[in-house]
């Protein structure tokens, strides 16, 4: 897994609540059997109209906005467990998703792919939207080591939470499989002594 330590970049605002994984990557694109290529269908039905042309009202198509940070409304990633949503966001080029709330499974899937789901307070989210909307070239600074997100022009910042184990994985590019396989003996012991089914 790719390491994540810190990042300073512009952001794309998506001021919509409850963005579900069906919007992030619609089910009809889940027929692939590898992880590649989902980026082109990210937010497919919001990004493109029925004729397949880019929808000019959607912020991912707005030339004003660019960058590897997506700032989205409350309860991002709800719905299906499809990890294809995290793969699509990553493949498109996002490295961090900022929201005031993340659905559990999406959060886990992102962390397992080196995509940082960064939860801020609703107040700070509002500040981010204001900053980006008033100046699309606003740079957002994210420091995982110190768990800090900062709006660079104003200096306004907020601390964010992350599970210490997961933080360590992100900082070092570790994934859970290596760790679990390294605990094989303990798992075997559990099976020998406590297995019920």
């Amino acid at each position: 897994m790719e390491k994540f330590i810190s990042l300073t970049d512009t952001a794309v605002p998506l001021e919509i609540e409850n963005i579900d994984t069906d919007q992030i990557i619609p089910a009809r694109f889940l027929k692939a059997t590898d992880k590649a290529g989902f980026g082109e269908n990210l937010f497919r039905d919001w990004r493109f109209n029925k004729e397949g042309n880019p929808n000019p009202d959607f912020n991912l198509n707005n030339k004003k906005y660019a960058g590897s940070i997506l700032v989205a409304g409350d309860n991002f990633g709800c719905g299906s467990s499809r990890e294809h949503a995290a793969w699509a966001l990553k493949a498109y080029g996002f490295k961090v998703i900022v929201s005031s709330y993340f659905a559990d499974i999406f959060k886990g899937n992102s962390l397992n792919n080196g995509l940082l789901p960064l939860q801020v307070s609703p107040e700070f989210l509002e500040k981010l939207f204001i900053a980006i909307n008033s100046d699309a070239s606003e740079k957002i600074h994210i420091d995982l080591e110190n768990q800090l997100i900062k709006i660079t022009s104003t200096g306004e910042s907020e601390k964010f939470d992350i599970d210490p184990y997961k933080k360590n994985c992100m900082l070092n590019g570790y994934d859970d499989i290596d760790f679990l396989v390294s605990r094989k003996e303990a798992i075997q012991k559990f099976e020998d002594t406590k297995l019920q089914f």
């Binding site: 886990g108 397992n112 184990y165 859970d176 679990l180 798992i187």
Partner: peptide, 22 residues
């Protein structure tokens, strides 16, 4: 509970998952 594909791989490899108690 539902899991993502990385976790499917974890269970394949270890019959276990790393999860914070909800």
């Amino acid at each position: 509970f539902g899991i993502g594909t990385s976790q499917v791989a974890q269970v394949f490899a270890s019959q276990c998952l790393l999860v914070e108690k909800p």
